[in-house]
Design a protein around this nucleic acid. Structure first.
Lengths: 193, 193
DNA sequence: TAGTACATGTAACAGGTTACATGATTGA
DNA sequence: TCAATCATGTAACCTGTTACATGTACTA
């Protein structure tokens, strides 16, 4: 839904190649939107056809030619239109919770084992985010506007990770006192629910 | 990804119709996975072909016939296999953050106006969740296992909503002291980033 | 009489994922 | 010599969304 508009936002700042844009997706933009390079190239091709953007070829030596994209007035106005539309609430799809629900018919023990993998992973991701914060945004007052915005987005990820860790720790604690009615995993159906 | 397995979890508890299953998606299952009835029917058709589930027609008077689905041993083992696989980290895609980033080239004021709509919405959703908690899970000790799991999932939603509200309030505060360099929204590009 | 609950689908489209495809340069 | 970086794509597939399609019974 938002993919083309995220790209248009990037191009509103300055012209860029598909490669530059996908790099942004794997760095700071990736903190709120994931997109593969294939998606980016496909989207740029579509937006070129719609005349939201244009591209110019810049030959290089020793490297493949660069195709530098620039936003067009039409694209600029499409971005504004999207920006001013009401933002729909994002539908949740959480595989971890799906497995938690499946604990009613599957082995709780093996789920706890997964938690023991996921919790440290989440903790190290959190540390990584906190490190980025210290490194790039340690002086919030002196940041340029765009960096302040990036900082806010990073803060969201930090808060979310912290919340998840807190929640998952409680889940673990609760499951440890759970009746282990399915450790051997029979194929029968449970009457419940 | 998880859709078929959520359905298999439901069917592991007891046989159900497509209608029953989609009702579950719009109630408690919907707290962690959204699926339309069309998706559910499509998935049931696919799983029937794969022999993960079977169905039996139960004629009714005055109402359309029921097609009751039952999980088959193959489906049961596919569920277990999925359950025991490592759980990948869910990719974030957040339109709200995308618009926050776009504040570097669009009107901050109009974004604050959106926040004034979204914050109360989030607050009322939070109250709704808390009401559900009081209503159905007020005595956590005496709950059946499957209800304890549902309660944990509901708690996750409560914590996430609270975190979001906290974060969004800070965003609002920060944006109110922001240089309003784009209220009139020119089509030029900003050098930054 | 209008809406909700019951009950089941088809079809087109949009967006995301994975696999395939190429090829030079630079650094460990 | 192996991996990473630079640089661009095509194609098939899967999943989610939206629109279309039908019909009864009950309740406000």
């Amino acid at each position: 839904m938002s993919l083309p508009y995220v790209i248009l936002t990037i191009l509103s700042r300055e012209p860029a190649t598909g490669y530059d844009i996908s790099k942004a997706f794997s760095h700071n933009v990736g903190h709120f939107w994931k997109a593969s390079h294939q998606q980016v190239y496909r989207e740029l091709a579509k937006m070129t056809q719609l005349e939201w953007v244009t591209s110019e070829l810049h030959p290089q030596v020793g490297k493949p030619d660069k195709k530098i994209y620039t936003i067009l007035p039409l694209g600029r106005s499409k971005l504004t239109a999207w920006f001013n539309q009401p933002t729909p609430y994002t539908a949740t799809r959480d595989e971890f919770s799906a497995k938690l629900m499946a604990c009613s018919v599957e082995s709780v023990d093996s789920f706890i084992q997964q938690l023991d993998v996921l919790l440290p992973e989440a903790q190290s991701l959190l540390r990584h985010y906190q490190q980025l914060e210290n490194q790039f945004y340690h002086n919030p007052e002196s940041l340029e506007p765009h960096a302040k915005l990036e900082h806010l987005i990073l803060k969201r990820n930090i808060l979310e990770r912290q919340t998840w860790i807190k929640w998952a720790s409680e889940v673990k604690q609760q499951l440890e006192t759970f009746p282990t009615f399915n450790t051997v995993n029979p194929a029968g159906s449970k009457k419940a629910y």
